[in-house]
Each structure stands twice: as C-alpha cells, then as structure tokens.
Design a binder for these strands. Structure first.
Lengths: 204, 204
DNA sequence: GCCATCTTGGACTGATCGGTCAAAGATGGT
DNA sequence: ACCATCTTTGACCGATCAGTCCAAGATGGC
C-alpha cells in the first residue's frame, strides 16, 4: 500500500474540484475531499500541500478545462461576435445541464464567497474572472464598436454568466436560463449594431 | 441581568442578518452571531429557536426591509416599465455601495448555497427569488408585450440582479456594476419596444 | 416583601474541523 | 538481497462547531 503513487493526480483533482464546486471552500471538509478522491490525509497533504493549496489547484484545473471550452466556442465564429457569445452561452448551459457535475460554477461559487477567503484565494478568483472577461472581450473585438463599449459588453456577458450559476443553484429550470441568455445575446447584438451605425445613437 | 428581555429583537435580527449576509449560512457560527448581536446562547435559542430558525427570520427581515424598497422603486414610475426597472437597479446599486452593510445580497448568497441548505431553507430562498420575480413582472405589466415576454424579461432582471451580487462580492467597482445595469435596462427597453411594434419582429 | 416566572451567561457535550505525525509497507537502485 | 526513499493509513491534536442545560439573578403580580 505504498512505494510509488497509487492514484492518478488529475483524477483526484477532478473529484476534489467537484467537492469545492458543490459545497464551496469552507463547506468542503477534508473528510469529504478524502472520501471523494479516495485519498487519506497523508496523500492529500503530501501531494497537494493542504486544503487551500488543493483549492488553488482545483481552481486552476477548472479554469483550464472549462476555459478551453469557452475559448473554442468563442473562437468558432471569427468575425461574428454575436454568434461567438451565443456559442459561449451554449457551452455554459451545457455544463450546467451536465448531470455528472454539480450545478452552478466553481468560479461563481468562489466569487460569492470571496470576502471570506484568503487574500490569495480571492485574488486568484478575481484573476479567473478577469481572464474570462478578456476572453469574451477578445471575441467581441471583431466589430466596429469603440473600446469602452466592448469592455462594458464583455463585463455584461461575464455578469450574465455568473447569474446563470446562481439561478441554476437555486433550481431554475434550463428553459429559464436559456431565455436569459437569449436576451443577453440580443443585448450584445443591439449594442454592437448601435455602435456600428451612429457614433452612439438611438435604436434606429 | 435577567427578568424581562434586555435587548431589542429587531436590532439583534439586523445584526444576525449581517453575519449570514457576510459569511453565508454555514460560515455563520453561533459564536459570531452571539458576538454580533451581543447575546448569549440562552437568549439566542430562547428568542429565535436555533440557528436555522434564526436564519429564516433573517431571510424574512431582509426580504421585508429591502423588498419594500424595491417595491417603492418599481412603483415609482407607473406606466413606464423601463424607468421602473432603472429605479429598481438604482436601489440595488445603492445597497451594494452602502458601507454599513456587507457587499452582495443575502438572497443571492443563500441561493448560491441553496444545494447545501435544508430543503426548508432552500424552499424559502426560492420563494424569495420568486417574490422578486413577481414584483418585477408586475412593474412590467404596463406594456403591450405578451405574457411570455414579460415573464422572460422579469427573469432576466432578477438574473442580472444576482450577477451584481456576485460581481460586487468579487470586488468589482461600482462603475462596472452600473454599466451592467445600463445594458440590462437597454435590453428591457428594446425588448418591450420590439414587442410593442411587430408581433415579434426584427429590431426595426 | 415574597415567590412564581422568565431571562441571562456560561459551562458543558459530543461531533467535526484542519492539520500533524509516526508506524508500516511498497518500491527501485545498487 | 538489501536498504534508502517514498507513500499510505489512521490515530491523534487542539480548536471550533451547534446545541443543551442549569444556576444565578431580575422582574412583576400579589
């Protein structure tokens, strides 16, 4: 029962990530993390370094796994920012509907608890939110809107994404979430169209 | 140090509410609640009945205090749904900017943790979200849009409201939150205008 | 002034928290 | 085959959790 590592680190990270995702940082006990990963405390500490270090690695993994999907979706429609955002939300809704994973979003969950986390943890969460903002912002860049409008639209898309996490955690059905993303996409489309025609004119 | 009640129940409820608001249900220890309210365990249990019962009463108080403000803002512009929603968001942003109270929103905080709460607590949170939805929906009713559109718009407004809580918890500046609400209001305006002209037509 | 009634503060319980540690066992280099 | 090195298991630590309980004290009716 010892010698070389007996488990797959990434698989354990996946399971631990689900626990933080479902229960939040404070609510994820080492016993729960141990049960989910199948690891004892020695392995947990030896491999990851402690609860907070494990949390950071789970954040990174989450950002890596789902960030890649977002990246792909946003890049799938070059030159068409609206469809890019639609594809982005499709991926988000798909993740929320995935029964093999907790509802909501680890980043949103952590952001909501940010004031109760370590400075370091809070900074990491903020960094991931900012990364998401930059990704969306990059997908919107293929348009004639000014930089300020693009920044605000990207913030808006990130905000709506967070709201989907909260609402899904509260049990909102997928149809409701879908209607929220539809309206958000309309906002993006209208805002970009508005910026394209007038300098900052009225709807028509 | 005894005899008749030595403290103001509502004031204690206010302080306890702030603790749940800041730390979430699980993170709010009875010691923290006792310190914040200045009450010992005997008083806490004798008056409120226990942690969860106290939480429910804090939820009710939060909904009562801020719900009344929302109600007023939404009703301040009868016949003008867009300005009503603007006023609603103004009140929300005002609360978020209020330094005498934690950032975020107790309902959003609780909704995000809903899967880890009691069935009863979760149901209460969902009920409060639904109440908010009905309030917004009522303010939107003064328009020629169909019922389905109004439902979806109300859901959208509630969703954006939740997102403001999450982003503010993550430290987003008021200017960002403001730009999110501006875009959300534009969405409401455009959507209502669209529904008023065509049956469900294009922007123009 | 006395006493039934209620409130209060703090001690206490058993469970659980994050974290540490040592004993036991498996491994690979030599 | 042996041994230095590493992993794993699970016991253990002090702190903290929610909740219970009771002695002490204050009150108001009488």
């Amino acid at each position: 029962m010892a010698g070389r590592k007996q488990f797959d680190v990434d698989a354990a990270l996946d399971q631990a990530m689900r626990v933080f995702w479902q229960r939040g940082y404070a609510g994820a006990s080492l016993d729960a993390l141990g049960s989910a990963t199948g690891l004892g405390r020695g392995s947990l500490y030896g491999t990851f370094g402690g609860k907070e270090a494990l949390f950071h690695q789970c954040l990174d993994r989450y950002a890596s796994v789902y960030g890649a999907r977002y990246e792909r979706a946003l890049a799938a429609h070059p030159g068409d920012p609206v469809r890019a955002v639609e594809a982005f939300f499709d991926v988000v809704l798909e993740r929320i509907a995935d029964p093999s994973v907790p509802t909501g979003c680890l980043i949103a969950q952590s952001a909501a608890q940010s004031p109760t986390l370590t400075q370091e943890s809070g900074a990491r969460v903020r960094g991931l939110l900012d990364l998401q903002h930059r990704r969306v912002r990059a997908a919107l860049a293929d348009s004639s809107a000014d930089a300020r409008t693009l920044d605000e639209l990207a913030t808006f898309v990130v905000a709506v994404n967070q709201s989907l996490a909260v609402l899904s955690r509260a049990g909102a059905p997928g149809t409701e979430l879908r209607s929220v993303t539809r309206l958000a996409c309309a906002t993006v489309a209208d805002s970009l169209a508005r910026a394209a025609s007038g300098t900052d004119g009225a709807p028509n």
